[in-house]
């Protein structure tokens, strides 16, 4: 898999506080990477280091295959929106865009208008941005992040403080940009449920430690309703399950068979296996919400740390 960004054991220490502890993330090109963590988990610190707004105490990172020192002096194709959109409230959206555009050496008013149209702000071009709603400001921040035609866009808590309508607007814009312009996104949030609607890969971070990197498919597999079966003859068991009329099942690397459909027929499946002389040593029905999965994971980390 091609990665647009890789960090290698990034650490950041503020005084006695270790904000980041050997964090290694891998952001696939063309994906939407959801960086999940509670407030104070180290998400913003990580994103600031990647965006060259802060320096790491140790470790390194590669963007587009180049280390940060190799990228010095180059115009890196990254757009950022860290913490809050840095906008001048008394100026219009066009003026705010123009300032950043000129700073990047781009003088293209058509592109500014096109970007504002893309984020749905083309009807308020001249309005002072101080009068914008929070969602509109976030979308303006995103438009500003897109000025240099970036291949990677870093958004820190883009849905923070937004109302449900604002969240949908921002989410749709991200999906559209990813789909139509093949822009890779890194989005941080503490609301996993919201990120789950757009992210393709997750990095779960807590207390400065990256707990897990997991794809959306793998996460869904772990969280959706399923039957977990452990047998002494998985090959035969799989054949019986298929004959039972189940097609959505998987023999996992952990030695268990997972069935994702007809989960209400747990007893019947057990009976079918027993009838065919397949010894079943484990059978359970499990489900977990994404939020619970995240909470359990971070709680385990807290337990380890406190131990």
């Amino acid at each position: 898999m091609e990665y647009i960004l890789e960090t290698n054991s990034l650490s950041k220490i503020y005084g006695r506080n270790k904000a980041l502890d050997n964090v290694s993330i891998h952001v696939p090109k063309g994906g939407i990477y959801g960086l999940i963590g509670r407030n104070g988990a180290g998400k913003t610190t990580l994103l600031k280091i990647i965006s060259s707004l802060a320096t790491a105490s140790s470790g390194e990172f590669k963007i587009f295959g180049k280390t940060s020192s190799e990228l010095k002096g180059e115009n890196v194709k990254i757009g950022t929106l860290i913490e809050a959109p840095g906008i001048y409230p008394k100026l219009s959206a066009v003026d705010n865009m123009q300032i950043k555009s000129l700073t990047m050496g781009i003088n293209d008013k058509q592109r500014i208008n096109a970007l504002l149209e893309l984020v749905g702000l083309d009807s308020v071009l001249k309005k002072p941005v101080g009068k914008f709603s929070l969602g509109m400001k976030q979308r303006l921040g995103m438009a500003m992040a897109l000025i240099g035609k970036p291949e990677l866009v870093i958004l820190d808590e883009p849905i923070n403080g937004l109302d449900p309508q604002g969240i949908i607007e921002v989410r749709d814009t991200i999906s559209k940009l990813n789909r139509e312009h093949n822009i890779t996104f890194i989005i941080s949030s503490h609301i996993l449920e919201e990120l789950s609607k757009v992210a393709t890969v997750y990095g779960i971070i807590d207390k400065g430690v990256l707990l897990e990197e997991i794809t959306t498919d793998a996460l869904m597999n772990r969280c959706t309703d399923k039957i977990q079966i452990g047998t002494n003859d998985n090959e035969k068991a799989c054949r019986i399950i298929k004959e039972f009329g189940i097609s959505d099942f998987r023999l996992s690397d952990d030695g268990f068979i997972y069935i994702f459909e007809q989960t209400e027929k747990c007893a019947e499946i057990n009976f079918a296996l027993a009838k065919e002389d397949v010894p079943v040593h484990h059978l359970s029905k499990c489900s977990e919400s994404i939020e619970n999965y995240y909470i359990n994971l971070t709680d385990r980390n807290g337990g380890n740390k406190n131990a």
């Binding site: 890196v76 990254i78 809050a84 906008i87």
Partner: peptide
């Protein structure tokens, strides 16, 4: 001060070559 206060510095500090 406005650059730091409204966060604009974050928009440009990462993109300038130096």
């Amino acid at each position: 001060n406005s650059e730091y206060k409204n966060g604009y510095i974050k928009n440009i500090a990462g993109i300038v070559t130096d």
